[in-house]
Design a protein around this nucleic acid. Structure first.
Length: 414
RNA sequence: CGGAGAGUAGUGUAAUGGCAGCACAAGUCCUUUGGGAGGAUUUAUUCCGGGUUCGAAUCCCGGCUCUCCGACCA
């Protein structure tokens, strides 16, 4: 993409009405725009990050055979009255007849009844969606970490009663979640945390990513790294995994939450197996837009964002440091080569910007690799590659570039 | 929903009872190009409603909004 054409703009100053790092950086870099507290637009750069996160999640969901669907955001009151959750104040109501979905048990359970009622066997049937959820938060905060409208992946699994299939699946999902967080580069700061089940189940597990902007307090076991949410800390004096009694207190943001729903919703909607027993269910959430905020919180420095390659809006940022014909042509050539392989290059072709502005903007945007084309480098017959995260610089001959691109991007995705 | 703070141009900031100013951004033109460069020129601002006053961005009352803390929160 040509930077001169992109619908976005960087800001020199931080907006005065945002305090969280993710909001300040994402707004300054032109990834998002705030409409109101907890309500944001995603601009082209921000949407690219969202799409990359979604695709990583999709790939991991497919690995375990979960199938993607899309359920409505507008829900009939009737379904919610059946489970007694119509009264929940987080739900936005529409004309006292509909509500905006903040989770989808009330929709997926009757939907599944049309397909798997009276079955005698289920082999890890699971469906998921990536969809916009609404929640009437009394206090939206911390940029895109806690919003009234957000993008979420929700997965639902179904298991015949009496087997340990739900428990096994639950463990499987934990592993898949770790794989996802590894690819999103937040695994190191994320802890599996025992938590209450809220209106879903007795207890649940949360995946909590440590950041000062986090709203939860978790206690991380000094021995094994398992964690407990403050809300149920009173019930656990020792680590549920290893029995250790020393904990480290951390502020964290919940990026995922998994529940064993058991028969809670299948009973209500009459989703039963061939023996007439309610089908066991699990649900597994992950906040896509919240994950983006968490990544921004963790991966940044005083110059701006530092995207992991897996979710960066672009992997390469080609900078033509001056606008002489020679430099422009050379940079354009590199851009064309990259565009043939994929759409991973942003080309700063702006003519009225100084070299300094281009470098500073590039740092703010946080694109992993700068490819710097300048007079200085041209005279030596090289292009310069600068690593945003490490700050390291190397010089490559034009013929070595192709190998470099391929080492940084995964071609199978394109 | 309670508490605190804050709303001036697209963004950031000055003016605290007396001409709404500056910087950046944006538009046009020229110069410049290794860490937010320079010149010329143009555009754009006091959250809303009421009150006090000769005069209000400034003081008072009400509302709205934003941020932070708390409550709440798959």
């Amino acid at each position: 993409m040509l930077q001169s054409k992109i619908f976005s703009k960087t800001l020199k100053n931080a907006p005065s009405d945002e305090k969280s790092q993710n909001a300040i950086l994402l707004i300054r870099a032109g990834f998002i725009d705030k409409l109101s507290a907890g309500i944001y637009s995603y601009l082209p750069l921000g949407l690219k990050v969202i799409k990359k996160i979604e695709n990583i999640i999709r790939e991991e969901m497919e690995k375990i055979g979960a199938q993607e669907i899309l359920m409505p955001a507008l829900h009939s009151k009737e379904n919610w009255e059946k489970t007694g959750r119509w009264g929940i104040k987080e739900m936005f109501k529409v004309e006292d007849k509909y509500g905006l979905g903040w989770t989808h048990e009330e929709i997926i359970t009757p939907l599944m009844k049309n397909f798997i009622n009276n079955v005698s066997k289920l082999n890890d049937l699971a469906v998921y969606q990536i969809q916009t959820k609404f929640r009437n938060e009394p206090r939206a905060k911390s940029g895109i970490l806690r919003t009234k409208e957000f993008i979420m992946k929700d997965l639902y699994s179904f298991h015949c009663e009496g087997s340990d299939s739900l428990e096994n699946y639950y463990e499987k999902i934990k592993n898949v979640y770790w794989d996802i967080f590894e690819r999103l580069k937040i695994k190191e700061k994320t802890y599996l945390t025992l938590a209450s089940g809220g209106s879903f189940s007795k207890e649940s597990h949360e995946f909590q990513t440590v950041t000062p902007a986090g709203e939860d307090l978790i206690y991380v076991c000094e021995n094994c790294g398992a964690a407990i949410n403050e809300e149920i800390k009173g019930n656990h004096n020792e680590c549920p995994r290893c029995g250790e009694k020393r904990f480290k207190e951390e502020k964290a943001i919940e990026v995922g939450n998994i529940f064993q729903l058991h028969r809670k919703y299948s009973e209500v909607f009459g989703l039963v197996d061939s023996d007439g027993k309610p089908i066991e269910m699990g649900c597994y959430g992950m906040g896509v837009s919240r994950v983006m905020g968490a990544i921004a919180e963790i991966h940044n420095d005083e110059k701006g964002l530092i995207w992991p390659t897996s979710v960066a809006p672009f992997v390469f940022h080609i900078l033509a440091l001056d606008s002489s014909e020679e430099i422009k042509k050379s940079a354009q050539k590199i851009y064309n080569e990259l565009s043939l392989i994929k759409k991973e290059a942003l080309f700063d072709d702006r003519e009225n910007k100084s070299a300094g502005e281009k470098l500073v903007d590039s740092d703010l945007l946080g694109i992993p690799y700068k490819i710097i084309v300048s007079k200085r480098n041209m005279e030596k017959g090289v292009v310069e590659i600068k690593d945003r995260q490490k700050g390291t610089v190397k010089f490559l001959k034009p013929m070595e570039l192709n190998k470099f691109y391929k080492s940084k991007i995964c071609l199978k995705n394109y």
